[in-house]
Protein backbone atom coordinates (compact mmCIF):
# COMPACT_ATOMS: atom_id res chain seq x y z
CA UNK A 1 0.00 0.00 0.00
CA UNK A 2 2.78 2.36 0.99
CA UNK A 3 4.66 1.83 -2.26
CA UNK A 4 1.52 2.27 -4.35
CA UNK A 5 0.75 5.59 -2.68
CA UNK A 6 4.28 6.83 -3.08
CA UNK A 7 4.54 5.86 -6.73
CA UNK A 8 1.15 7.39 -7.45
CA UNK A 9 2.23 10.65 -5.85
CA UNK A 10 5.48 10.63 -7.80
CA UNK A 11 3.51 9.97 -10.94
CA UNK A 12 1.07 12.80 -10.40
CA UNK A 13 3.91 15.13 -9.46
CA UNK A 14 5.83 14.21 -12.58
CA UNK A 15 2.86 14.93 -14.80
CA UNK A 16 1.21 17.86 -13.06
CA UNK A 17 4.02 19.20 -10.85
CA UNK A 18 4.02 22.65 -12.38
CA UNK A 19 0.24 22.99 -12.16
CA UNK A 20 0.26 21.92 -8.51
CA UNK A 21 3.07 24.34 -7.71
CA UNK A 22 1.07 27.07 -9.42
CA UNK A 23 -2.08 26.37 -7.39
CA UNK A 24 -0.13 26.21 -4.10
CA UNK A 25 1.59 29.43 -4.98
CA UNK A 26 -1.68 31.22 -5.75
CA UNK A 27 -3.24 29.98 -2.50
CA UNK A 28 -0.16 31.03 -0.51
CA UNK A 29 -0.02 34.56 -1.88
CA UNK A 30 -3.80 34.82 -1.76
CA UNK A 31 -3.69 34.17 1.98
CA UNK A 32 -0.75 36.51 2.49
CA UNK A 33 -2.33 39.43 0.67
CA UNK A 34 -6.05 39.83 0.08
CA UNK A 35 -5.54 42.12 -2.90
CA UNK A 36 -3.66 39.39 -4.76
CA UNK A 37 -6.78 37.57 -5.93
CA UNK A 38 -8.89 40.67 -6.55
CA UNK A 39 -10.36 40.66 -10.08
CA UNK A 40 -8.61 43.85 -11.15
CA UNK A 41 -5.26 42.59 -9.90
CA UNK A 42 -5.66 39.23 -11.68
CA UNK A 43 -6.69 40.89 -14.93
CA UNK A 44 -3.83 43.34 -14.53
CA UNK A 45 -1.31 40.55 -14.15
CA UNK A 46 -2.58 38.59 -17.15
CA UNK A 47 -2.74 41.73 -19.20
CA UNK A 48 0.85 42.65 -18.46
CA UNK A 49 1.92 39.05 -19.11
CA UNK A 50 0.14 38.97 -22.46
CA UNK A 51 3.03 40.29 -24.56
CA UNK A 52 5.51 37.88 -23.01
CA UNK A 53 2.86 35.17 -23.31
CA UNK A 54 2.19 35.68 -26.99
CA UNK A 55 5.89 35.34 -27.76
CA UNK A 56 6.19 32.30 -25.50
CA UNK A 57 3.44 30.55 -27.48
CA UNK A 58 5.56 30.76 -30.63
CA UNK A 59 8.81 29.84 -28.91
CA UNK A 60 7.04 26.72 -27.62
CA UNK A 61 6.98 25.39 -31.21
CA UNK A 62 10.68 26.12 -31.67
CA UNK A 63 11.64 24.49 -28.37
CA UNK A 64 9.52 21.38 -28.98
CA UNK A 65 11.13 21.00 -32.40
CA UNK A 66 14.43 20.79 -30.53
CA UNK A 67 15.83 24.30 -31.09
CA UNK A 68 16.17 27.63 -29.31
CA UNK A 69 15.11 31.13 -30.25
CA UNK A 70 17.06 33.87 -28.48
CA UNK A 71 16.25 36.48 -31.11
CA UNK A 72 12.63 37.07 -30.08
CA UNK A 73 13.26 40.03 -27.76
CA UNK A 74 15.27 41.91 -30.30
CA UNK A 75 12.82 40.92 -33.02
CA UNK A 76 9.93 42.36 -30.99
CA UNK A 77 11.76 45.68 -30.72
CA UNK A 78 12.04 45.59 -34.50
CA UNK A 79 8.31 44.91 -35.00
CA UNK A 80 7.33 47.63 -32.57
CA UNK A 81 9.56 50.28 -34.13
CA UNK A 82 8.59 49.30 -37.67
CA UNK A 83 4.85 49.34 -37.10
CA UNK A 84 5.04 52.71 -35.31
CA UNK A 85 7.12 54.22 -38.10
CA UNK A 86 4.91 52.86 -40.87
CA UNK A 87 1.79 53.95 -39.01
CA UNK A 88 2.49 57.55 -39.85
CA UNK A 89 3.87 56.82 -43.31
CA UNK A 90 1.35 54.27 -44.65
CA UNK A 91 -1.52 54.50 -42.21
CA UNK A 92 -2.34 51.80 -39.65
CA UNK A 93 -4.26 49.59 -42.10
CA UNK A 94 -1.20 49.08 -44.29
CA UNK A 95 1.39 49.35 -41.53
CA UNK A 96 0.20 46.24 -39.71
CA UNK A 97 0.43 43.73 -42.61
CA UNK A 98 3.70 45.31 -43.76
CA UNK A 99 5.19 44.86 -40.28
CA UNK A 100 3.97 41.24 -40.12
CA UNK A 101 5.53 40.52 -43.50
CA UNK A 102 8.89 42.03 -42.54
CA UNK A 103 9.02 40.28 -39.16
CA UNK A 104 8.10 36.95 -40.65
CA UNK A 105 10.84 37.38 -43.27
CA UNK A 106 13.29 37.52 -40.36
CA UNK A 107 11.75 34.37 -38.92
CA UNK A 108 11.92 32.66 -42.30
CA UNK A 109 15.59 33.62 -42.63
CA UNK A 110 16.40 32.09 -39.23
CA UNK A 111 14.32 29.05 -40.14
CA UNK A 112 16.27 28.70 -43.37
CA UNK A 113 19.61 28.82 -41.55
CA UNK A 114 18.63 26.41 -38.78
CA UNK A 115 16.35 24.12 -40.80
CA UNK A 116 17.82 23.85 -44.27
CA UNK A 117 21.47 24.72 -43.59
CA UNK A 118 21.33 22.83 -40.27
CA UNK A 119 23.25 25.48 -38.35
CA UNK A 120 23.18 25.46 -34.57
CA UNK A 121 20.12 27.39 -33.41
CA UNK A 122 21.86 28.86 -30.36
CA UNK A 123 24.55 30.47 -32.51
CA UNK A 124 22.16 31.58 -35.24
CA UNK A 125 19.60 33.20 -32.96
CA UNK A 126 22.21 34.71 -30.64
CA UNK A 127 23.74 36.31 -33.71
CA UNK A 128 20.34 37.40 -34.95
CA UNK A 129 19.62 38.97 -31.56
CA UNK A 130 22.40 41.43 -32.22
CA UNK A 131 21.91 41.69 -35.99
CA UNK A 132 18.21 42.51 -35.68
CA UNK A 133 18.99 45.10 -33.01
CA UNK A 134 21.33 46.72 -35.52
CA UNK A 135 18.58 46.57 -38.13
CA UNK A 136 16.14 48.28 -35.76
CA UNK A 137 18.57 51.07 -34.96
CA UNK A 138 19.28 51.54 -38.65
CA UNK A 139 15.55 51.80 -39.37
CA UNK A 140 14.91 54.31 -36.60
CA UNK A 141 18.20 56.14 -36.85
CA UNK A 142 18.58 55.43 -33.14
CA UNK A 143 15.70 57.73 -32.19
CA UNK A 144 12.62 56.83 -30.20
CA UNK A 145 9.61 56.23 -32.42
CA UNK A 146 6.32 57.97 -31.69
CA UNK A 147 2.98 58.21 -33.43
CA UNK A 148 2.40 61.88 -34.23
CA UNK A 149 -1.33 62.02 -33.61
CA UNK A 150 -1.93 59.80 -30.60
CA UNK A 151 -5.53 60.90 -30.07
CA UNK A 152 -6.65 60.69 -33.67
CA UNK A 153 -5.82 57.01 -34.38
CA UNK A 154 -7.73 53.78 -33.78
CA UNK A 155 -4.40 51.96 -33.56
CA UNK A 156 -4.58 51.92 -29.76
CA UNK A 157 -7.42 49.39 -29.58
CA UNK A 158 -5.11 46.34 -29.58
CA UNK A 159 -3.13 47.41 -26.55
CA UNK A 160 -5.58 49.65 -24.73
CA UNK A 161 -9.11 48.59 -25.63
CA UNK A 162 -11.34 46.12 -23.89
CA UNK A 163 -14.32 43.99 -24.81
CA UNK A 164 -16.97 43.35 -22.15
CA UNK A 165 -14.53 44.52 -19.52
CA UNK A 166 -11.74 42.18 -20.60
CA UNK A 167 -8.63 43.90 -21.97
CA UNK A 168 -7.96 43.17 -25.65
CA UNK A 169 -4.37 41.90 -25.03
CA UNK A 170 -5.84 39.15 -22.81
CA UNK A 171 -8.34 38.18 -25.51
CA UNK A 172 -5.56 38.26 -28.07
CA UNK A 173 -3.38 36.02 -25.92
CA UNK A 174 -6.25 33.63 -25.19
CA UNK A 175 -7.35 33.38 -28.82
CA UNK A 176 -3.83 32.80 -30.08
CA UNK A 177 -3.24 30.22 -27.34
CA UNK A 178 -6.35 28.30 -28.41
CA UNK A 179 -5.50 28.39 -32.12
CA UNK A 180 -1.86 27.39 -31.59
CA UNK A 181 -2.83 24.75 -29.07
CA UNK A 182 -5.08 23.14 -31.66
CA UNK A 183 -2.38 23.47 -34.31
CA UNK A 184 0.17 21.73 -32.09
CA UNK A 185 -2.03 19.09 -30.51
CA UNK A 186 -4.51 18.23 -33.22
CA UNK A 187 -2.92 18.63 -36.65
CA UNK A 188 -0.42 16.49 -38.59
CA UNK A 189 1.94 19.45 -38.56
CA UNK A 190 1.91 19.53 -34.74
CA UNK A 191 2.60 15.82 -34.57
CA UNK A 192 5.58 16.28 -36.88
CA UNK A 193 6.95 19.06 -34.67
CA UNK A 194 7.01 16.61 -31.74
CA UNK A 195 8.59 13.89 -33.88
CA UNK A 196 11.34 16.16 -35.20
CA UNK A 197 12.17 17.37 -31.69
CA UNK A 198 11.83 13.96 -30.07
CA UNK A 199 14.10 12.18 -32.53
CA UNK A 200 15.05 14.05 -35.70
CA UNK A 201 16.76 11.05 -37.25
CA UNK A 202 13.76 8.81 -36.74
CA UNK A 203 11.54 11.56 -38.17
CA UNK A 204 13.71 11.66 -41.30
CA UNK A 205 13.56 7.87 -41.53
CA UNK A 206 9.76 8.19 -41.39
CA UNK A 207 9.66 10.50 -44.37
CA UNK A 208 9.06 13.69 -42.41
CA UNK A 209 10.65 16.77 -44.00
CA UNK A 210 12.66 17.80 -40.95
CA UNK A 211 14.07 21.00 -42.45
CA UNK A 212 10.62 22.26 -43.44
CA UNK A 213 9.18 21.57 -39.99
CA UNK A 214 12.00 23.49 -38.28
CA UNK A 215 11.63 26.29 -40.82
CA UNK A 216 7.90 26.57 -40.15
CA UNK A 217 8.40 26.57 -36.37
CA UNK A 218 10.55 29.69 -36.71
CA UNK A 219 7.99 31.30 -39.00
CA UNK A 220 5.31 30.64 -36.36
CA UNK A 221 7.61 32.07 -33.70
CA UNK A 222 8.16 35.24 -35.74
CA UNK A 223 4.40 35.54 -36.37
CA UNK A 224 3.87 35.52 -32.60
CA UNK A 225 6.63 38.09 -32.17
CA UNK A 226 4.86 40.30 -34.72
CA UNK A 227 1.63 39.96 -32.71
CA UNK A 228 3.52 40.94 -29.57
CA UNK A 229 5.08 43.90 -31.34
CA UNK A 230 1.62 45.01 -32.42
CA UNK A 231 0.30 44.81 -28.84
CA UNK A 232 3.32 46.66 -27.50
CA UNK A 233 3.18 49.44 -30.09
CA UNK A 234 -0.56 49.80 -29.71
CA UNK A 235 -0.33 50.03 -25.94
CA UNK A 236 2.39 52.68 -25.80
CA UNK A 237 1.90 54.39 -29.19
CA UNK A 238 5.58 55.18 -28.98
CA UNK A 239 8.67 53.20 -28.18
CA UNK A 240 12.38 52.99 -27.54
CA UNK A 241 14.61 50.83 -29.72
CA UNK A 242 15.25 48.46 -26.82
CA UNK A 243 11.68 47.71 -25.80
CA UNK A 244 12.08 43.94 -26.13
CA UNK A 245 15.56 43.71 -24.64
CA UNK A 246 16.04 40.74 -22.32
CA UNK A 247 12.62 39.34 -23.14
CA UNK A 248 14.14 36.25 -24.78
CA UNK A 249 15.32 34.84 -21.45
CA UNK A 250 12.05 35.53 -19.67
CA UNK A 251 10.21 33.85 -22.53
CA UNK A 252 12.50 30.85 -22.39
CA UNK A 253 12.04 30.69 -18.61
CA UNK A 254 8.25 30.66 -19.04
CA UNK A 255 8.41 27.90 -21.66
CA UNK A 256 10.74 25.75 -19.55
CA UNK A 257 8.74 26.51 -16.41
CA UNK A 258 5.73 25.18 -18.30
CA UNK A 259 7.61 21.92 -18.70
CA UNK A 260 8.76 21.93 -22.32
CA UNK A 261 12.01 20.03 -22.66
CA UNK A 262 15.03 21.99 -23.88
CA UNK A 263 16.03 18.78 -25.64
CA UNK A 264 12.85 18.93 -27.70
CA UNK A 265 9.92 16.61 -28.16
CA UNK A 266 7.96 17.56 -25.04
CA UNK A 267 5.74 20.43 -23.92
CA UNK A 268 2.31 21.83 -24.75
CA UNK A 269 0.84 25.24 -25.47
CA UNK A 270 -1.36 24.96 -22.36
CA UNK A 271 1.66 24.30 -20.16
CA UNK A 272 3.43 27.30 -21.61
CA UNK A 273 0.42 29.46 -20.71
CA UNK A 274 0.72 28.14 -17.14
CA UNK A 275 4.45 28.95 -17.19
CA UNK A 276 3.73 32.50 -18.35
CA UNK A 277 1.10 33.00 -15.64
CA UNK A 278 3.36 31.62 -12.91
CA UNK A 279 6.07 34.05 -13.90
CA UNK A 280 3.59 36.95 -14.01
CA UNK A 281 1.97 36.12 -10.68
CA UNK A 282 5.31 35.56 -8.94
CA UNK A 283 6.48 39.02 -9.94
CA UNK A 284 3.16 40.58 -8.98
CA UNK A 285 2.98 38.70 -5.68
CA UNK A 286 6.46 39.79 -4.67
CA UNK A 287 5.57 43.35 -5.54
CA UNK A 288 2.43 43.21 -3.38
CA UNK A 289 4.39 41.68 -0.52
CA UNK A 290 6.56 44.75 -0.81
CA UNK A 291 9.87 43.44 -2.13
CA UNK A 292 11.99 45.80 -4.16
CA UNK A 293 12.00 44.97 -7.86
CA UNK A 294 15.70 44.13 -7.90
CA UNK A 295 15.10 41.43 -5.28
CA UNK A 296 12.48 40.06 -7.66
CA UNK A 297 15.10 39.24 -10.28
CA UNK A 298 16.84 36.96 -7.84
CA UNK A 299 13.69 35.42 -6.39
CA UNK A 300 12.25 34.80 -9.85
CA UNK A 301 15.40 32.97 -10.84
CA UNK A 302 15.41 30.88 -7.68
CA UNK A 303 11.79 29.87 -8.23
CA UNK A 304 12.50 28.89 -11.83
CA UNK A 305 15.44 26.73 -10.82
CA UNK A 306 13.37 25.19 -8.04
CA UNK A 307 10.50 24.41 -10.38
CA UNK A 308 12.74 22.85 -13.01
CA UNK A 309 14.58 20.80 -10.41
CA UNK A 310 11.35 19.52 -8.84
CA UNK A 311 10.11 18.62 -12.29
CA UNK A 312 13.25 16.64 -13.12
CA UNK A 313 13.42 15.07 -9.66
CA UNK A 314 9.83 13.89 -9.93
CA UNK A 315 10.57 12.36 -13.34
CA UNK A 316 13.64 10.58 -11.98
CA UNK A 317 11.82 9.56 -8.84
CA UNK A 318 14.65 10.85 -6.65
CA UNK A 319 16.07 14.20 -5.69
CA UNK A 320 19.73 13.74 -6.37
CA UNK A 321 20.95 11.54 -9.15
CA UNK A 322 24.46 10.62 -10.19
CA UNK A 323 23.28 9.97 -13.73
CA UNK A 324 20.93 12.15 -15.72
Amino acid sequence: MATITRSTITNVLAKQGILIAFVLFIIGFGLANSRFLAVDNVLGVIRSSAILGVIALGVTFVVISGNLDLSVGSMMSFSTIVVLDLHDKLGPLMAIPAMFALTMCLGAFIGFLVGYLKLNSLIVTLGMLSAIHGLTLTWSGGKNMDIADKQGTWFGIFGRGDVLGIPVPILFFALLAIVLSILLARTPFGRKVYAVGGNGTAATFSGIPRARIVFLSYVISSFCVACAGLLQASRSLGSQNTVGQGLELEVLAAVILGGASLLGGAGTVFKTVIGVLILGFIQNGLLLVGLAFYVQYVVTWVIIILAVWLDIAAKRGRFLSPIA
Partner: peptide, 15 residues
Protein backbone atom coordinates in the same frame (compact mmCIF):
# COMPACT_ATOMS: atom_id res chain seq x y z
CA UNK B 1 16.40 5.72 -36.43
CA UNK B 2 13.21 3.76 -36.00
CA UNK B 3 11.32 5.27 -33.11
CA UNK B 4 10.60 8.48 -31.27
CA UNK B 5 10.97 6.92 -27.83
CA UNK B 6 9.11 9.68 -25.99
CA UNK B 7 6.04 9.28 -28.20
CA UNK B 8 3.29 6.77 -27.61
CA UNK B 9 2.84 3.54 -29.59
CA UNK B 10 0.04 4.80 -31.78
CA UNK B 11 1.79 8.04 -32.77
CA UNK B 12 4.95 6.16 -33.66
CA UNK B 13 3.10 3.68 -35.77
CA UNK B 14 1.17 6.22 -37.79
CA UNK B 15 4.00 8.75 -38.12
Amino acid sequence: QGLVLGMNCKDNMTL
